[in-house]
Structure formats: C-alpha cells, structure tokens
Design a binder for these strands. Structure first.
Lengths: 228, 228
DNA sequence: CCCGTATATTACCCACTGGTAATCAAATGT
DNA sequence: ACATTTGATTACCAGTGGGTAATATACGGG
C-alpha cells in the first residue's frame, strides 16, 4: 500500500529493486498468514484459497510466490529452523559447564517456541513433505536433539549433571519444550520470559523440594531468576 | 471363521450371542488397524480404503461397524482415555504426598503412552472431530492436566514440592510425557518400564547433580537405572 | 427347503481442493 | 504513445476420498 517513492538519482532503491522488495514483502506476508492458519486449523484443513482470501487475493495469485502448497510448508520449516539456530549457535560456541549450557539452550528453545515460526517447526507434521525436504527437516530436528544430548553428556562428565541416560533425558527436555506450542497463547497471562525461566529451572533442578529446608544446593538462585 | 457350535439347550452362548461377539471382535480389529495406520501415516493420509484393505475387506464393509471415519477417530480417543483413567483413578484414590502421587502419575502416564491407544490420545488431532466429541476429548485432556496440577499444588502445600507455578509445572510434565509418542518404538532398545522410571525421577528430581556428593534425597537410585 | 437377517461387494456419486490455462490490468522503460 | 514485463483474475481440470445404493452371499430359524 504505502509507496515510499525513492526519488533521488543514483538512489540504491532503483525501481527494479523496489519491485523486488515489494515482491519479497508479499512473499513474507503469505508465509506469515500461512503459518498462522496452519497452526490454528492444521495444514490439511487450511485450503490455499483461504490463505489467499485472508490476504485479499485469490488462490492462483499465490502461485506467483510459491510453486505448491508443500513449498510453503517447506519454507515455514526452514524459517522455524533459523529461529532455533540463531539461539543455539552462540551457546554452543560459548563456554560453560554442561548444565549451564543446557539451561541456556532450554531458555533459547523456549523463546523460539513462543514465536509462530518456532511453533510450526515443532508442531506441523513433516510427513506432508516429499522425501528430500522431509529429510532436511528431520536432520534439523535431530540436530537440536543432539545439541541437548551433547550438553547432557558433557554435564555428566564434568559432574554438573547427575548420571542418567542422556538420550532419554534429552527427549524429556525437548518434549516438555515442544509441548509449549500446544498451550501457549501470545495474549495469555504467561509471558514468554517467565516460561523460559521456569522451564530452565524445573527441567534441571526438578520439582522435588530439597531434603534439608536450608538453601538446597550450590545454586543460590531459588527465587532470583526472574530478570530478563 | 471358527464356528464353536454352542449346541446345548439353555447355553449362555446362543447363536445370537455368538454373532454379536464375532461382530465386536471385528469392530475391535478395525480400531486396532485404524490406530496403527493413523499413528504411522496420519489421519488425513490414511484413507478408509487402506484400513479396509489391510483387513482384507473393502471400504463399505467398514460402515457396518462405524457410521463415519470421524466416529472411528472418536472411538480411538475414548479407548485412549480409558487407558489413562485406569492408571490415574487408583492413584488419586490412594494416599501419599503430592510428590509421591505426582511420581506415580508420571509412571502411569508413561506406561499408557507406550501403547497404541495411549499414543493416539496424545498425538492425533482432536480438531478433526465435530464440536461435541471434540469437547469430550478436550475435557478428558484437561482432566489429566488438572490431575497433575492438583498433585503439584498439594506437594507445594505439604512441602514435598518446591514453590513454583503449578500450572506451568504441570504443562512441562505433560509435555515431556506426551513427547514420548514422537520417538517411542515398541521394538526399540528402550523398554517402557525404563522410560517410566527415568521420567519419574528426572521430572521430579531434575537433572542437576546435587551440590554435596552425599546421597541427595530419600531416593537411593542415582546410578541404577541403566539395565534393560 | 425356503425365508429373513446380517454382512460383504461392486459400482457409483460428489464435494473438496491443489494446480493450470487463458486472459486482463497496471506499472516500467524506451 | 507503445511494447514488455509482472502480477492478478476468472474459469476450468482432475485426483482423491468419504459416503451411499443396489446387490450378492452366507447363515440361523421355522
């Protein structure tokens, strides 16, 4: 709608670039609408015509931006993957004990899970995709599972995490986090930060009260975790 | 196929009863096949004709036992619900601290989650159902969420569980458990018992090692969980 | 031996929906 | 002004799949 009018000569915003930018914005709008509807009603119960309708266009217009419905889904998975990658990369490259990195990953993952693209990565069914793109999605998912598992293994070695089956432990953590998509509502009373904080605490320190009523362990953070 | 021939007069197995029994068995066979295919391929990607084919019948024959595909799904949800109800009922009626009951519930839920009907209750999408049956499913799901939450609240009061947001805590526990359906394979290396044990421990005691190397709490099972 | 009931089959219908073809309109650039 | 390119529309096609009607077969009962 708004036409910013580049005007000046030698502007980096030549009309050609302008066109291309507008096109990308429209493509993004399709993806944002698609992810919302897919999450709300499910992939199968969301006809392309409804996505188009909500964008005030008609179904064939979508084919200017995507070759198929499946390609839209594929793009959504990729955007979701980027969400998580941005959070995980720095943590993996950083330093800290296995437990500390695991906690950081839980926070990062919870943060991504409270966004539309993050949710769709965890909630939409990759079985809709053909073999090749599906393999890509599964590789990405395995990558995060492995990231959790690796830090748990490190933690067991460096003594920050109790002895356990790291594979099962990583499944439990990832399961709790993926479940966020099933109940989180952006307008709800629970801010994403609070979710990330409690999950990071609960999944590592557990729910059970410490045996001695004195401050439990070496971590003096029983009630001081709320800050951003 | 087998015709047991009731023969005797006044037998409780009149031919009529015999017919009805055979009918119920066939109905069950449909449900068992349906749940397997729905879990494997997804509800939408499983045509009724394929369920029928795998049972060596044709699609319209299914309509002798169910009025619609949706009714099959509804029956599956109900069977799943029964799985969980059987586990939860005794625990709720029994005694124990909030923490102890929570642990028992985690074990029971994990046990149910490793069955076909239990998985379908957690994994299949209730949005396929019409308003009324869907409300029933959601009521059942809320019932289990509330059961977890109630024990967590009790535990916070009786001192067995640390202070936390019980709603969020219950979501985390349920999420980890529901996630089992995403990776559990009956033929896999992980027996259902081992999963239930580690989840009950990990979700209550956490992953972090205790600060003092002495045995942390009342549970002496720090490193005895690996056997198959 | 024949009839009625239950259960299965074949053939069919039709709604939905992803995708395409032909066409049209608007902005771009010479 | 005019041709070209881009992006949108209307009309349409075809596969898929749930559900139904008509019909055949098998079995128990009089």
């Amino acid at each position: 709608m708004s036409a910013p009018k580049p005007v000046m000569e030698t502007s980096p915003w030549t009309p050609f670039e302008d066109r291309r930018r507008a096109r990308d914005e429209k493509r993004d709008a399709v993806l944002r609408m698609a992810v919302r509807l897919f999450l709300e009603d499910g992939y199968h119960r969301t006809p392309l015509a409804r996505i188009a309708e909500r964008l005030n266009i008609t179904k064939p217009a979508l084919y200017n931006y995507f070759a198929s419905k499946e390609e839209i889904l594929q793009a959504l998975f990729r955007l979701g993957d980027e969400q998580y990658e941005e959070g995980f990369g720095p943590i993996e490259r950083g330093s800290g004990s296995g437990l500390e990195k695991l906690r950081a990953m839980i926070r990062a993952y919870a943060g991504s899970m409270t966004t539309d693209f993050g949710m769709c990565f965890a909630r939409l069914d990759d079985r809709e995709l053909a073999e090749a793109p599906r393999a890509e999605v599964r590789r990405a998912k395995r990558r995060y599972d492995l990231a959790f598992r690796t830090q748990i293994e490190r933690g067991v070695e460096d003594g920050s995490i109790r002895s356990c089956d790291p594979k099962l432990a990583a499944f439990a953590v990832a399961g709790a986090l993926n479940g966020i998509a099933d109940w989180y509502k952006p307008a709800g009373a629970l801010p994403a930060e609070a979710i990330a904080d409690q999950f990071a605490l609960q999944l590592t320190e557990g729910l059970a009260a410490r045996a001695d009523p004195a401050r439990p362990a070496g971590k003096p953070k029983t009630a001081a975790k709320q800050e951003g």
